[in-house]
Nucleic acid binder design. Structure first.
Length: 488
RNA sequence: GGUUUUGUGGCCGAGCGGCUAGGCAGCGGUCUGCAAAACCGUCUACAGCGGUUCGAAUCCGCUCGAAACCUCCA
């Protein structure tokens, strides 16, 4: 009952069910996550996806798996919008940016690495780029053509969905049926070269305004926008690996087409478990520039977005995200973030208390059960909100011990301390600012608080409050507890 | 229109057939020189209408509302 379990169930988007996680190779996990496109700075919604998969990665590590985590960087593909009628100013701006595509890639790559640090994300084992794998993409396209699931038209290569559907099931992930797709009233572009409207490009003949062009057996051009993931995932993880993740918005067509490409070239679905992270809303709506609720991950930390009237620490953002399940939409509002801020403070203060807790012979609570509840929550499809709920039960217990209303044994304290900090730091990826262990500040604070203590003993409230107010102005909060005064 | 989801208390969010979610806010206490924190107690829920069931927020149907995707855009 209170046994710690490392059983893990994962909701598989492919089957629509929670399934027991059994890696293809014992103790090893191959995980591929669709990464950012470096033609703009990822917004907060993109970051939620990456942070959620960071949490998933961290829990897999916590369970002792040897994880190979691959997340691509999209720095190539179709960057043109050759509609021919970009007379509006937005089109002109886009055109300008295209001219500088390489610069933009460098710029946003640096930016993205910085964001990963700010939000305390573990780096993947490999971050391959699309432009570094053009040859692999070409080889897979050749294989698909050879297998009869793609055709060449005028320097471009298209995936043949109808031919594919005779042998495989197109739409297996998204639930779309080829026949139903066919009934759609969507009108095709007049210049369309595709045999069937559901066909998609594997290789696209170069346009005159393309800045990045590669040679191929079919002439100069660009790879299609799904093929890079197929090329890089199979190269680094093999034709079949354990987990493929990404944002929910990538489910169709991107992931659906990845499956088609993998089946069409290698004959199998690339991933055993497909995982999709849900979207982030702001003030009840999808983030959108026109709605005025759009902001960047750095802006919210720096307080430079007009959406919120104060900055929020990366820890608070992460904490807030961890309070929602990765498969649910999450709404960011000032109220929800303020609540998260206070909740996170409560959590970190309890963890600070851990090392000073008094121990006795017996514990008044079943610590083993508390710790088991942590694993159980995460084992149920990475249910971080339940984990946090259970952690807050532990927080209450810790505070009670600190107040003398509950007890804990030495062995239990060690267990609780180790596991709690591990789940908070290693799994949820939160970091605690331990001001009280600051080597330079600590002796000063000891001195100051000692003076204040003397003043309080003499009932010299003026001096005592002056010290407290002065420290508060410097950002240091003083709290008078039963066991003495603490600060943070 | 199609596919996939979704609608929980003042706010954010779990639960998904019977058992307290949790955080924040509110109210009443305890503690405290005051403050803060903490602790104890407590109040607001499951969109609506039917159905299945001994029993439904949880399953099914309908109505109303919301979201993502629907192909060259990661």
């Amino acid at each position: 009952m209170s046994t710690i379990t490392n059983e893990l169930f994962i909701y598989n988007s492919l089957t629509g069910q929670k399934e027991k996680f059994e890696p293809i190779h014992e103790n090893r996990v191959g995980m591929y996550v669709c990464g950012p496109t470096l033609y703009s700075e990822p917004h907060m919604g993109n970051m939620r996806t990456f942070i959620n998969f960071d949490m998933i990665y961290r829990y897999l590590l916590k369970l002792g798996y040897q994880v190979k985590y691959v997340r691509n960087i999209t720095d190539a593909g179709h960057i043109t919008n050759s509609t021919g009628d970009d007379v509006d100013s937005i089109g002109k701006v886009a055109r300008l940016e295209q001219v500088q595509s390489l610069e933009i890639v460098y710029k946003y790559n640096v930016n993205f690495q910085e964001l990963q640090r700010i939000y305390n994300m573990l780096p993947p084992n490999i971050e391959p780029t699309a432009t570094g794998h053009i040859q692999e993409q070409i080889e897979i396209i050749e294989q698909i053509i050879e297998n009869g699931f793609a055709y060449v038209v005028n320097g471009s290569v298209y995936f043949d969905v109808r031919a594919y559907s005779e042998k495989f099931e197109y739409g297996i992930l998204s639930g779309r049926k080829v026949d139903e797709l066919a009934e759609e009233t969507r009108t095709l572009n007049a210049q369309d070269e595709k045999r069937f409207f559901a066909d998609f490009a594997l290789w696209k003949k170069a346009n005159p305004d393309d800045m990045q062009i590669w040679r191929s057996p079919w002439g100069n051009g660009n790879p299609g926008w799904h093929i890079e993931c197929t090329a890089m995932s199979t190269k680094y993880l093999g034709s079949q690996f354990d987990i493929h993740g990404g944002g929910l918005d990538l489910k169709f067509p991107h992931h659906e087409d990845e499956i088609a490409q993998n089946c069409g070239s290698l004959g199998c679905n690339p991933a055993k478990y497909w995982m999709h992270a849900n979207m982030l809303n702001v003030n009840g709506q999808k983030m959108s520039k026109s709605l005025g609720n759009y902001f960047l991950p750095k802006e919210i930390v720096e307080g430079t977005t007009a959406v919120f009237d104060k900055p929020y620490a990366p820890n608070v953002i992460r904490f807030s995200m961890m309070q929602a399940h990765y498969r649910s939409t999450l709404d960011f509002t000032s109220d929800s973030l303020n609540a998260a801020e206070k909740g996170f403070t409560r959590l970190s203060e309890a963890i600070d208390k851990l090392e000073k807790l008094p121990t006795v012979e017996t514990s008044s609570q079943d610590v083993q059960a508390i710790v088991a509840s942590f694993y159980k929550a995460m084992g149920d499809d990475f249910n971080a909100p339940i984990l946090l709920a259970n952690i807050f039960e532990a927080v209450k217990y810790i505070n009670s011990i600190s107040d003398g209303n509950a007890t804990i044994s030495k062995a239990d304290l060690e267990l609780l301390s180790t596991e709690l900090t591990s789940f908070v730091l290693d799994v949820l990826g939160l970091s605690l600012s331990k001001a009280s262990t600051d080597s330079k500040l600590a002796p000063v604070m000891d001195l100051v608080l000692d003076i204040r203590k003397t003043a309080r003993e003499n009932k010299d409230w003026t001096t005592s409050d002056k010290i407290r107010d002065g420290l508060a102005a410097a950002g240091i909060v003083v709290k008078d507890g039963k066991e003495g005064t603490s600060w943070s």
